[in-house]
Design a binder for these strands. Structure first.
Length: 902
RNA sequence: GGGCGCUUAGCUCAGUUGGUUUAGAGCAUCUGCCUUACAAGCAGAGGGUCCGGGGUUCGAAUCCCUGAGCGCCCACCA
């Protein structure tokens, strides 16, 4: 780096010029790369792989900023930091998108067929799949890009298939004809977790079903009239007196003209509706269960797209389910069988991706067994038990902790996972069927499960084999992410388990829980030790930011306007652990302003360096002088620096990242800029050359430490300034510089105390100036009646409070027509002949006396309470006594001032 | 129907195992300033029944009970 001259450095920080330059520098110098290095401890993060359909959202910004903060901090602290990036093929999400994309071009997925469709998907992935990765780079994330993974890479694909075969052999994967959640838009089964329940305003229809051989009707209520075409029974509660006489009788189902039984089942709630339930075993989960219990006929009335099939009367066939609903209702009305219709609010399950109501649907699917028979309590050889234990035993910690409850609750009530999808984009299920020759026997019906395609049927020898058409649920591949991203055993041994997982609580079931299961099962170890659940980013109205609502600002635009550092800072600053965040773009001013503040602090230091500006005074840096010529201000800033570091480490250990950044913010802005920089100016502009060198060297050293502490949060500006602060070698970076280590010995209460005293005096004088509307450019004279103000403190007070002549003397007489303040046993007078309004001053002092007397009364009461003195900790009582004494003295002094005020 | 979280200044939030006391910060508001790092800034000021009601305690924003409001998750009520 060649030194820049001060005149090159603009007054306002301009991020766009800086960010791309340093990102390229980091990549070119391999700063983010990680390889096995047994001399170093690894610190590993596996990125939650964004979908290839994804665009960068504010959620990604928060999530990836956090990961980058963790990984950069550890990298600087000497760990072998490895952040593996990648993307998820997102089976159903991508297939939905590509299908729609093709449909817009009048291309039908089913017409072109599987192979052609998959080619389109690959093309689509090539075109759009990398966008989000490119966008992430703008944020400054320090991933090892050489390690980029995709869930359908060859090695990863193989890993997924291997896991399937393994689990099948262990009996943990099975095939079954079951009722599943059917997405008619995608014509595929989906898992329970992919069903989103929405409250909809619907109706409750009451039908009259005629009881056979009787004049009676039985009235049933339903939210889905169309399913009556598949009814095969009517259920009542066995204890329901109203219907007891009908149990065992039959009903002639209207329209379908089918005879169906009336039976009793405990499931029926007598209070709801009429207490009689129409039962459609093929299209409702509860009805299915009842159907099983009572051996009812199952009549499937729908095709895979939720249109009616041949099992309904002719005129009702091949119609959309909502069309049929209208027709059924109309017909029942015609027949005089409509009893009544009520408005009714109920919850309807929607397909997450298809965004249409799901249909409970009977079909042949693959399932993964989650807990052993009889629940998870009984055994250890299932997937769930070790995963529960890992969290229970604290091997995996959740932040915030309360998510553990949600996790346990779900894990304990877990049901088998439907992992097959009637889709094409994804990992095709490694199962083949013999579709045989003449000599085929019954055994040939057994599926052939194999990692590689079998050549022939092991039973009949036929080579006429057909692979299962289905692909796996996307989460049945991403659940292996934590280990499958590492290709060799050696790498797995070194990097696995990963350390911190940063993800949203919305995928705790989809992904986090299943990754834990996969880790415990396949690796016999946890996949990560800490899980940080991010906040949800909401807009100003409190709505979740989402693509569909269009209320999420484009992060790239925000980065363009405010800078990546400002965006990162703002999002982290606003996001406390476990709380939602209300974000709006203009809040980024917070981060931008902070960046500018740091920028100018750096500028100030740089402009005093001789080699940065021709003709500047000769202040040479001399690292040997870093601790020379220290006074209380220096002691204080070191004390503050080290205290901040300790608090920062603690906050980071507890994943309180927003507290961490607030600590840094406050140290840089309030301590360093507001006070320390102002205080060193006296010495910087004084005569002693060595003192000047010492002061500037020290200030720069402290500033560099602050830059390092800030670097994980705001990587670009800190790199830029760090590079400017000193001559750096080629390839050197703040990213790989050593992180400051806290030194408890540097924390000195005496320095803090002395500084507070001086600050209070300065603030009191500034306060008077403010109230008297004295321009900052105008100096005043001041007197301090005290014996405790030290000579060396006087220059600071004069400088920072803009005092021309400052007289300190324990025997000072208050001059007439002066404003005054009393604090810490010190009286301050500012003579303001002609400027002061005595009445206003009198009121001000009186107000202060009243306030102090109020406080004093409280403390008097407290201290005269024997129980307090007896029970409270001695140091607390001591503190109260000290306060009491201090306030009493102040009151006396103020009263004296008041009486002499003329 | 269960579970979880939240409620503190106009807004967004801090507030450690109860005790620096006058409950803090940023934004917003008001006042004065282009003071030679920074107007994206500096120096000041005002602004609060800590959601309501009980209780424990010498002492509660903080712990317990209870009520209200908001948000989220889970659950098969036709």
């Amino acid at each position: 780096m060649s030194a820049k001259s001060f005149s090159d450095i603009p007054k306002a920080y301009n991020p766009s010029q800086v960010e791309d330059k340093w990102y390229k520098y980091w990549i070119d110098n391999g700063i983010f790369n990680s390889d096995i290095d047994k001399t170093k401890k690894p610190y590993t993060i596996a990125i939650p792989p964004p979908n290839i359909t994804g665009m960068l959202t504010m959620g990604h910004i928060l999530n990836n900023s956090l990961q980058d903060i963790f990984i950069r901090t550890k990298r600087m602290q000497g760990y072998n930091a490895c952040w593996v990036p990648g993307t998820d093929h997102a089976s159903i999400a991508t297939e939905t998108k590509v299908t729609k994309f093709l449909a817009d071009k009048q291309i039908d997925k089913y017409q072109i067929g599987r192979e052609a469709f998959l080619e389109h998907c690959q093309e689509w992935k090539k075109e759009y799949g990398g966008i989000i990765i490119q966008q992430l780079k703008k944020l400054g994330v320090s991933c090892d890009w050489r390690r980029e993974r995709f869930t359908m890479d060859d090695e990863y694909y193989h890993e997924v298939i291997k896991a399937f075969v393994e689990l099948y052999k262990e009996g943990k994967i099975y095939r079954g004809y079951r009722m599943v959640n059917w997405d008619p838009a995608n014509k595929s089964a989906i898992s329970d977790e992919e069903v989103i329940f929405k409250t909809v305003n619907g109706k409750l229809w009451y039908f009259k079903y005629p009881v056979m051989d009787s004049e009676e009707f039985i009235v049933v209520a339903t939210t889905r009239p169309e399913t009556m075409l598949g009814d095969t029974g009517v259920a009542v509660n066995p204890n329901d007196e109203r219907y007891k006489h009908l149990i065992g009788k039959k009903i002639l189902l209207p329209i379908a003209d089918r005879e169906i039984p009336i039976f009793a089942d405990d499931y029926v709630d007598m209070e709801f509706g009429t207490g009689a339930v129409k039962v459609t075993p093929a299209h409702d989960v509860n009805d299915y269960d009842m159907g099983q219990r009572h051996k009812l006929e199952m009549i499937n009335i729908f095709n895979d797209d939720a249109t009616t099939n041949g099992n309904v009367p002719k005129e009702f066939r091949e119609l959309d389910r909502y069309e049929v609903r209208k027709k059924v209702v109309a017909r029942l009305e015609e027949l005089g069988l409509m009893f009544k219709i009520e408005d009714y609010q109920n919850k309807v399950g929607y397909s997450e991706r298809g965004n249409v109501p799901i249909e409970p649907y009977l079909s042949e699917q693959w399932f993964m067994k989650m807990s052993s028979e009889g629940g998870s309590a009984s055994g250890g050889d299932d997937l769930v038990t070790p995963a529960i234990k890992a969290v229970q035993e604290g091997k995996i910690r959740f932040y915030p902790k309360h998510w553990e409850k949600t996790y346990f609750h779900w894990m304990e009530g877990i049901r088998d996972w439907c992992i097959s999808r009637q889709l094409w984009w994804g990992h095709r299920i490694p199962v083949w069927y013999c579709v045989g020759d003449d000599h085929c026997n019954l055994e040939c019906k057994q599926p052939i499960v194999s990692i590689t395609p079998p050549e022939k049927c092991p039973h009949c020898g036929s080579t006429n084999l057909k692979q299962d058409e289905d692909v796996l649920d996307t989460w049945a591949s991403s659940w292996l992410w934590a280990h499958a991203i590492f290709k060799t055993d050696e790498e797995r041994k070194y990097y696995y388990p990963t350390n911190t997982l940063v993800t949203g609580p919305d995928i705790i079931f989809f992904w986090v829980a299943r990754m834990i299961m996969a880790g415990m099962h396949f690796m016999k170890d946890i996949p990560f030790s800490d899980v940080y659940f991010t906040s949800i980013i909401r807009d100003q109205q409190g709505r979740k930011m989402s693509k569909s609502l269009g209320n999420s600002p484009d992060p790239l635009e925000v980065i363009k306007d405010y800078g990546a550092d400002a965006l990162r800072f703002t999002v982290i600053y606003l996001a406390p652990l476990g709380q939602d965040v209300f974000f709006s773009t203009d809040k980024c001013e917070l981060g931008r302003n902070f960046a500018n503040k740091i920028w100018n602090a750096g500028r100030f230091l740089l402009m005093n360096l001789p080699d940065r500006q021709a003709g500047a005074e000769n202040i040479f840096l001399n690292k040997d002088l870093k601790n020379a010529h220290k006074d209380f201000a220096d002691e204080w800033i070191f004390s503050r620096l080290n205290k901040t570091l300790l608090q920062l480490n603690k906050a980071m250990d507890e994943f309180e990242v927003n507290n961490a950044i607030k600590l840094i913010y406050s140290f840089i802005w309030n301590d360093f800029c507001d006070w320390y920089v102002e205080m060193i100016k006296n010495r910087l502009y004084a005569d002693n050359v060595e003192v000047k060198s010492a002061v500037l060297t020290r200030a720069i050293s402290i500033f560099e430490d602050a830059l390092k502490m800030l670097h994980p949060f705001m990587p670009f500006i800190t790199e830029e300034l760090w590079q400017l602060m000193d001559e750096r070698k080629d390839g050197e970076s703040i990213s790989t510089s050593s992180y400051p280590v806290a030194d408890g010995k540097m924390i000195k209460d005496s320095a803090d105390e002395e500084m507070d005293f001086v600050k209070d005096i300065i603030t009191a004088i500034r306060n008077i100036r403010g109230e008297m509307n004295i321009a900052p450019s105008k100096k005043v004279n001041a007197m301090i009646k005290s014996s405790s103000v030290k000579d060396y403190q006087i220059e600071y007070i004069k400088k920072l409070a803009k005092v021309e002549y400052l007289k300190v003397d324990p025997n000072i007489q208050k001059p007439k027509a002066s404003a005054s303040a009393v604090l810490r046993g010190v009286e301050i007078f500012i003579p303001l002949e002609g400027l002061i309004d005595l009445e206003v001053e009198r009121q001000k002092i009186q107000k202060e006396i009243t306030r102090l007397e109020g406080s004093l009364a409280g403390i008097d009461k407290k201290l005269s309470n024997e129980k307090f003195v007896a029970n409270a900790a001695p140091e607390v009582v001591e503190k109260e006594r000290a306060k009491q004494k201090d306030w009493k003295e102040n009151i006396i002094k103020l009263k004296e001032i008041l009486s002499n005020l003329s």
